[in-house]
Design a protein around this nucleic acid. Structure first.
Lengths: 175, 175
DNA sequence: AATAAGTAAGTGAGTACTTACAAATAATAA
DNA sequence: TTATTATTTGTAAGTACTCACTTACTTATT
């Protein structure tokens, strides 16, 4: 991986997450990365190819975050970790960009790809079951809905305190 | 309002909500509406102007839905109605398109405009206060987060049963 | 000598928008 | 009513510009 190729990737992450995929032109991208426009196509073949490369990197990050939640054995901790993950993501600008890009693309292309969050849902369902909840799968679904809602507020609302909200939720789920 | 002007508006609602604002070209839009491309600019001056006209129509619908919630005096019913509103929207294809467009644009332009939902938040805060909750404003915020999450799942996830989810939530808030 | 990394200057297709003009409708005058 | 003017509604054919992508070529690395 050459330096210029890395520059393209990080410029793409920033611009796609900020302006959206369709709205980011390859010429603007090349300018931001400090390379010629042609180099983008040399390395990634097409604009879509660049996006794919970026998404593959994002998936690695996602799996890293998820691994910690899935391997947790204490059911209460599974819920805590799932919720706290959002705080971690929000605190790191680069991770935040990856998540923002994920959601922007969801809405731009209208593909949710439930399979990616499926392991988390399973882990949450098991956790709620161990804790004696009546409808563990519905409870897990509710957590995922809350996460989508918090991500929406996190990236689109100005006055949203994710840390406070997550803490309130953790407190609620302690009962 | 001539028939062709209405055709432009309904074609724009459908295409903007489906493909996004940026991705919908005025030529494609004119073809779908069955008019010449120039007529769009005669009536709405620009593509942005057309979007604005569409959003103004959407705001009327939104206020109509919100009015019923805000004027409700029974606190429990305020919560029920806020949640049930999503079922109503989901059931009517045209209303669903308006909401989908709202959220697509939120993510495309990154402006949330909290002011629009502010009246609902106030109504919910008052409701939770009357019901004796400790942190009524936080509870109201949580409902709004849930609504954002459900909208996300509603439009982007294939296997999401909004009616069931809303019913579960209403049941939860009965305690 | 061969391959990879890089660029400058294109290319055709599509973009939002304009212009010049025709047809329909409304307003006014006889 | 009818004739005439004015205004609105509509279109076809452009315009300048931007887009993703290509080509032909040079420079660096193996």
């Amino acid at each position: 991986m050459t330096e210029k190729k890395e520059n393209i990737l990080s410029a793409a992450l920033e611009l796609f997450a900020q302006e959206g995929f369709k709205s980011t032109s390859t010429s603007k991208l090349a300018a931001q990365a400090g390379v010629s426009e042609g180099l983008i196509f040399r390395h990634f073949k097409s604009k879509e190819g660049l996006l794919k490369a970026l998404m593959d990197l994002g998936e690695e990050r996602l799996e890293y975050i998820f691994a910690d939640i899935i391997t947790e054995s204490d059911p209460q901790e599974v819920i805590n970790k799932a919720l706290t993950a959002l705080k971690t993501v929000a605190a790191d600008p680069e991770q935040a960009h990856f998540w923002k890009l994920q959601y922007k693309l969801k809405w731009e292309t209208e593909t949710y790809d439930d399979s990616k969050v499926e392991p988390i849902k399973v882990a949450l369902t098991n956790a709620f079951e161990k804790l004696g909840y009546s409808y563990p799968e519905k409870e897990a679904q509710l957590i995922l809905i809350l996460m989508d809602g918090m991500v929406t507020k996190l990236f689109l609302s100005q006055n949203f305190d994710i840390n406070e909200t997550v803490d309130i939720l953790i407190e609620k789920y302690k009962e």
